[in-house]
């Protein structure tokens, strides 16, 4: 045999494209962000000031935390639309429990547990009963928002314990606590994704669920755990938000889930599962935050802000599609 099929080289244009795509999908998006940041810093007045950057980071910390676990959900090939409702519900629960027990610790634990419980419910419905996660979490999005209203009788729950809103107001080395927590969440889940067996298994299941199952992975258990983590972290985000606002508001964060998913997709997480990087997600979150912040500084009317945000998401999805071709 002259040339066995295996020894002939990869066709050049295809591999060149893939290499390019990988670069853009990996460090390329980081470079895109740095350019964007530089341009905004030069052309947008008051953008590159300590005060503004602090504010910017604080404003993305809510989306940032949830995006870290949403990355796992999307990497699994699933989606979780209920995160915004969890944020509201956990905030209400944390505020009520704190007021009732006079204990901040118990209040925080109750908020996070409430989120984890919703996540466990989502996971069981999605993994156990094989219901499409889009539908299942659309349902819990409504249900949990309802629960938030019921638990608060429709009004924001004022927090009486000063120690509770101290968390949101305190800062360390010039950065407020929610920002530090967000950084820790990114570090933890980035580490899990790359250095734990769990993270690899999540990517494998998202890449090909049936192959993963036949290879002996506990697919159902892993799916449930991912949804529980998503719920717990959304709960934590809800507690932090409540502490910043010093009240648990059942109406808060409507539409937040779309911002979170947008940030992940922008960061190169594949919606069909199997592909995710933490650096991409962090940058995705920062791009969203910078654009939002710059538009506010430039007094872009709210109506136009919607158009810009939507366009950015669309571009990201088109890029994702191009990359997988």
């Amino acid at each position: 045999m002259a040339a066995s099929p295996e020894t002939t080289g990869i066709s050049s244009d295809q591999s060149a494209r893939r290499r390019w795509a990988n670069k853009l999908g990996g460090s390329g998006i980081v470079i895109a962000f740095l350019i964007l940041f530089f341009v905004l810093a030069v052309f947008v007045p008051n953008f590159f000031t300590v005060r503004n950057v602090q504010g910017l980071l604080l404003s993305v910390s809510l989306i940032g935390c949830i995006a870290a676990t949403m990355m796992f959900v999307l990497a699994l090939g699933e989606v979780d639309l209920s995160v915004a409702s969890i944020v509201a519900f956990a905030g209400v629960v944390a505020a009520s429990v704190t007021s009732a027990t006079q204990s901040v610790i118990i209040g925080i634990a109750a908020g996070i547990s409430a989120g984890a419980a919703v996540g466990a419910f989502n996971g069981t419905v999605v993994a156990g009963f094989r219901i499409n996660s889009l539908i299942a979490t659309l349902a819990t999005m409504e249900i949990v928002r309802g629960l938030a209203y019921i638990a608060s009788s429709g009004d924001a729950v004022i927090i009486s314990e000063a120690a509770f809103f101290e968390i949101g107001a305190s800062s360390f080395l010039g950065l407020s606590t929610p920002i530090w927590i967000n950084i820790m969440v990114f570090a933890l889940f980035g580490w899990l994704l790359n250095y734990s067996v769990f993270g690899r298994n999540v990517l494998a299941i998202g890449g090909n669920g049936e192959a993963a199952r036949l290879a002996g992975l506990p697919v159902m258990r892993i799916r449930i755990v991912v949804f529980v983590l998503q719920g717990a972290v959304a709960g934590l985000a809800g507690v932090l938000l409540a502490s910043r606002m010093s009240l648990g508001d059942p109406k808060t964060s409507i539409g937040l889930e779309l911002g979170v998913i947008s940030a992940c997709v922008l960061g190169g997480v594949s919606l069909t599962g199997g592909i995710a990087t933490i650096s991409g997600v962090i940058v995705g979150v920062l791009i969203m935050g910078c654009v939002q912040n710059a538009m506010s500084l430039l007094n872009v009317p709210t109506f136009y802000q919607y158009v810009v945000r939507g366009s950015i998401l669309l571009l990201a999805v088109l890029f994702d599609r191009w990359r997988r071709r």
Binding site: L192, Y195, S196, V197, F198, R200, N201, L203, A204, G207, N208, A211, A212, A215, G216, L217, G274, I275
Partner: peptide, 26 residues
């Protein structure tokens, strides 16, 4: 196969569980 994943990830897909350290670390 997990087509998008690497040769190494595909080979280790199953046996990885025997190599776990501290219950989590690969």
């Amino acid at each position: 196969l997990i087509l998008g994943a690497s040769v190494g990830d595909n080979v280790n897909l199953s046996c990885r569980r025997h190599q776990i350290r501290l219950g989590l670390v690969r």
